[in-house]
Design a protein around this nucleic acid. Structure first.
Length: 559
DNA sequence: GCCGTTTTCGGCCCGACTGTTTTCAGTCG
């Protein structure tokens, strides 16, 4: 069993406990454990769960049970008491555990379909606290749930958030405006857009927000907050706070929820209480911080914590790392040209790298197995090297590295002759085919490529495509160990739909002493500008500049 | 269910908003 299996089982236990009406603090314990496990980069089979924060004897035993037997007695027992369909009901907005339980116990409704039918027929109204409006809202929320609002890739969310942010920033009386929530934390995907404004009069900002051309429906508009649904289907929230609360509001609305719970718990230990308006002493009610975010953290005896780290993954406990910044990046070690499936010539890519101020750029077109992308064989690869040499004369500011993105074939061998690969400045090796192999086979395949002696970087190691394809299963610990043994770097691919490796794997690799290469995999000159996405993700993995190959000046020593 | 440099028992983050409750429960973030 893997971490995912444990997380799935415990998450289900959380939902079932909620539906059962269990003690809320017991439920919270399970929720905290799930969050901790979600943020764990190590394989649970190699860690003692009892050493993790928020996991005691009982939960550690449950985790061990799931890992060894693949099942969980508590989960089985709860499933015997509560219909499984109720769990799905929790996904409907504004339909929580208390309501779901009542619908089941008082009306015998066990599925969303049954609830929908009953609401249509007005059969919910006899329930205490249910009126026509409640039925109407419930039906609308079920329709929303059916429409399936998935998390969207960060770049998609940013493209929608930025015009909204500009609009509220331009509203009368707005002093400050920023993104908050998961967008500010730099998560790879986002469910809702969160915007925050500082203004004494909230009216103009809320009006500008609700009237924006991208808004399909205003769901809620109060005196301090508004929620809208965009034409894209995403929801967006706006909060407006006065100057003296700006920092506290930034802290609060950036989250994550788990981080905020940890922050507030720490505050209580210190005799303080934190809300979105400020930090107050519990005894005297005196406000001790709130206007600026660093001051809020300082009042709790903490340094300002970069938003990317605010996930309750140890950021309150230990010293914080010096995180990678976009300005640390000296070059890009993975891009494509018209020799394969890129849009630009070698010369155009080189000029674009020069304009970005880079010291170097590696040209790494596909290898021959990727016929659909006009992949290069050994002969064309040598011909391309001649062109790279010519272009190098024209663009002396950028050191051009002759490389390739060679396919890792299904058996782990490489798609080009080893002697041809050995002649290159840089070899990125990637999986583009046979992705449905099982975990063991894929792990062996990757390790064989890593051990070839000619590979410098494993490209987009999991193969995931955000919102479209789960990455293939592989044993990251084992592949990272092989990378360490052979001096191979893992790529953090900055392509908006990839962002691969993910933040946790990046964190694990760096902990184990394996270098990362933060690359764009650009197929056009514009895509070289996606580097910031990878940098943000690296920061979420607690990655510093020294762990990243392409922060080295001059030509990087990859191995 | 977890946790402890005042505690092994008694705490556990906090507020906005909604609908229908005439005083607040439920949900969300």
């Amino acid at each position: 069993m893997t971490n995912k299996d444990v997380i799935r089982a415990l998450g289900n236990v959380c939902d079932l406990l909620l539906l059962q009406g269990a003690d809320e603090f017991r439920v919270r314990s399970y929720q905290r454990a799930v969050n901790t496990l979600r943020g764990l980069s190590e394989d649970l089979n190699r860690v003692d769960p009892a050493t993790l924060p928020g996991i005691g004897k009982s939960l550690a035993a449950t985790i061990a049970e799931i890992l060894t037997t693949g099942s969980c007695a508590l989960q089985a027992q709860l499933l015997g008491e509560i219909p499984a369909g109720l769990v799905e009901m929790l996904q409907v907005p504004d339909l929580g555990p208390k309501t779901a339980r009542r619908l089941w116990q008082e009306l015998g409704l066990e599925t969303i379909d049954a609830v929908e039918q009953a609401a249509r027929e007005g059969r919910l109204r006899p329930l205490k606290g249910f009126g026509a409006k409640t039925e109407e809202n419930l039906l609308a929320n079920i329709a929303l749930w059916r429409a399936g609002r998935e998390r969207v890739p960060r770049i998609v969310a940013l493209m929608q958030a930025e015009p909204l942010l500009a609009a509220v920033r331009a509203a009368d009386g707005v002093q400050e405006a920023c993104l908050a929530g998961s967008l500010r934390r730099g998560r790879d995907t986002t469910k809702d857009l969160d915007l925050l404004v500082c203004a004494e009069d909230s009216g103009p900002a809320i009006a500008a927000f609700c009237a924006h051309e991208s808004v399909a429906e205003v769901q809620l508009a109060g005196s301090t907050k508004a929620t809208v649904r965009l034409t894209s289907g995403l929801n967006a929230d706006l909060r407006v706070v006065p100057r003296e609360s700006w920092g506290a509001a930034q802290q609060y609305f950036t989250g994550s929820q788990a981080h905020n719970v940890a922050v507030r718990s720490r505050a209580r230990d210190l005799g303080l209480t934190v809300n979105e308006y400020g930090v107050r002493r519990l005894d005297t009610d005196e406000v001790v911080a709130g206007a600026d975010e660093a001051g809020v953290y300082a009042a709790l005896g903490l340094p300002w914590i970069p938003p990317e780290l605010r996930e309750d993954r140890g950021e309150l406990a230990g010293p914080l790392p010096d995180l990678l910044e976009l300005g640390d990046i000296r070059g890009d070690l993975h891009c494509h040209t018209r020799w394969s499936d890129g849009m630009a010539t070698v010369a155009e890519m080189a000029a674009a790298a020069r304009d970005l101020g880079y010291d170097y750029l590696a040209i790494t077109d596909h290898s021959k197995a990727l016929t659909i992308a006009k992949g290069l064989d050994e002969e064309r690869l040598r011909a391309q090297r001649e062109e790279i040499r010519r272009v190098q004369q024209e663009v002396p500011e950028v050191h051009l590295l002759a490389g390739v993105e060679v396919d890792i074939l299904s058996d782990g061998s490489l798609d080009l002759a080893l002697d041809a690969l050995a002649e290159l400045d840089i070899v990125v090796a990637s999986v583009h085919s046979a992705m449905s192999q099982g975990r063991e086979q894929m792990t062996e395949r990757l390790i064989r490529a890593v051990s070839s002696g000619v590979v410098h970087i494993v490209g987009h190691p999991s193969g995931r495509l955000l919102g479209r394809r789960e990455g293939y299963e592989y044993d990251a610990e084992a592949v990272i160990a092989a990378c360490l043994a052979h001096g191979v770097a893992l790529e953090l691919n900055s392509a908006p739909e990839r962002l691969d490796v993910d933040d946790l794997t990046a964190r694990l690799a760096v902990r184990r002493g394996v270098a990362l290469a933060v690359n764009t995999d650009a197929h056009s000159t514009a895509q070289l500008g996606n580097m910031h996405l990878g940098v943000t993700q690296a920061r979420r993995g607690w990655v510093g500049a020294s762990a990243v190959v392409n922060t080295q000046p001059g030509a990087p020593r990859v191995r």
